[in-house]
C-alpha cells in the first residue's frame, strides 16, 4: 500500500463526531496553510447569505479551517484558501492528500487577496496548482466555459481588484479542479455593522463587487453541478432523440 493510501486510510479510520459533519448541501472549508492565508472575518457568512438568497443551495454556516491532513477533509469537497502572503511549502503527505481530494471530485479555490499581480502569492499559486495537478498549470478559463453560466451569466471580471480578466484554472479530466482568482473574491463580502462594504472594489466600485459576487456563486454552483449547464444545451436534443426512438414502434 502506498503512502497516499495509508494516509487516506488513517484519515478515514475514525468516525467524526456528530456536529463535525456538515449539514446542508454545500459546505466550505478553509484550507489552513498558515497565518498569511485566512479569509476576512465575515466573508463567508455574507457569501452564504448571497447564495441562500439567490439559489436553492443551503450552505452549512460552519466554515472549519482544515489542515491538509485533517480527516474531515472528506466531508468538504469544496476548499478555499485566501492568501495575502505566500504560505510555506507543504509536506509531501499534505500535497498527496490534496491530490486525492481533487481527484475524488474536490474543488480548490485559490484566492489572491494581496492585490498584486505577478507577486509572491501568484507565483505560489501557480506552483501550488502545478504540485496538486502535475502537468496541468493554471490557464485562463476560456470565454465560453460553463463556469460563466452555471447560474448567472457572468463575464468573469469581478472582485475586489481588477487584475485579471477571467479566473484561471487547472484542469483534471476536463473539470476545473483548482480555480485561481487574482481579483480577491473573498474581500468583496465583509460588511460593517451598518451593512456597508468593508473593502472598496477598485476601480469598478459596486458593479465590480456585484460581478465578483456572481462569479463566486457561479464557482460554487460549478463545484456542485459540474458541466450541468452544458447538458442543458443538449437536453432538448437528447429528449427529442428519445421521442424519436419511441415513435419508431409506430413505423
Amino acid at each position: 500500500m502506498n503512502r497516499a493510501a495509508l494516509f487516506l486510510a488513517s484519515a478515514l479510520c475514525c468516525s467524526p463526531a456528530a456536529g463535525e459533519v456538515p449539514s446542508g448541501n454545500f459546505a466550505l472549508a478553509e484550507l489552513d496553510l498558515g497565518p498569511g492565508c485566512r479569509a476576512p472575518e465575515g466573508a463567508w457568512k455574507e457569501a452564504f447569505a448571497f447564495i441562500r438568497l439567490n439559489t436553492s443551495v443551503e450552505p452549512d454556516p460552519e466554515v472549519p479551517r482544515l489542515a491538509p491532513g485533517d480527516p474531515r477533509l472528506v466531508y468538504h469537497p469544496f476548499l478555499a484558501v485566501s492568501c495575502s502572503k505566500a504560505p510555506p511549502a507543504l509536506s509531501y503527505s499534505a500535497i498527496t492528500a490534496l491530490r486525492l481530494h481533487l481527484s475524488a471530485g474536490g474543488t480548490l479555490l485559490l484566492n489572491n487577496s494581496s492585490g498584486a499581480r505577478g507577486g509572491s502569492v501568484e507565483r505560489w499559486a501557480r506552483d501550488f496548482a502545478g504540485l496538486l495537478l502535475p502537468g496541468a498549470g493554471l490557464e485562463p478559463l476560456p470565454p465560453g466555459h460553463v463556469l460563466f453560466k452555471s447560474f448567472f451569466i457572468s463575464r468573469g471580471r469581478g472582485g475586489r481588484f481588477d487584475l485579471q480578466a477571467v479566473p484561471e484554472a487547472a484542469f483534471r479530466s476536463d473539470r476545473a479542479a483548482v480555480i485561481y482568482s487574482a481579483n480577491d473574491l473573498a474581500g468583496i463580502w465583509p460588511v460593517s455593522a451598518a451593512g456597508a462594504p468593508v473593502y472598496p472594489c477598485l476601480p469598478g466600485g459596486e458593479p465590480q463587487r456585484l460581478e465578483g459576487r456572481r462569479l463566486f456563486l457561479n464557482i460554487v454552483m460549478y463545484a456542485l453541478t459540474g458541466s450541468y449547464k452544458e447538458d442543458a444545451v443538449h437536453q432538448p436534443f437528447l429528449i427529442e432523440k428519445m421521442r424519436r426512438l419511441s415513435s419508431g414502434e409506430a413505423q
Binding site: F78, G105, F151, R175, L224, M242
Partner: peptide
C-alpha cells in the same frame, strides 16, 4: 433538488459511463 456534492458526483459518474444516456435536471432556484 438543490445542487449538492452528491448530485455532482452521481452526475459525473453517470456522464462518464458510455452505456448511459443521461438527462439531468437540478433545481438551482
Amino acid at each position: 433538488g438543490p445542487p449538492s456534492f452528491d448530485y455532482a458526483a452521481l452526475r459525473a459518474q453517470l456522464k462518464s459511463d458510455p452505456g448511459v444516456d443521461l438527462v439531468s435536471f437540478v433545481i438551482l432556484r
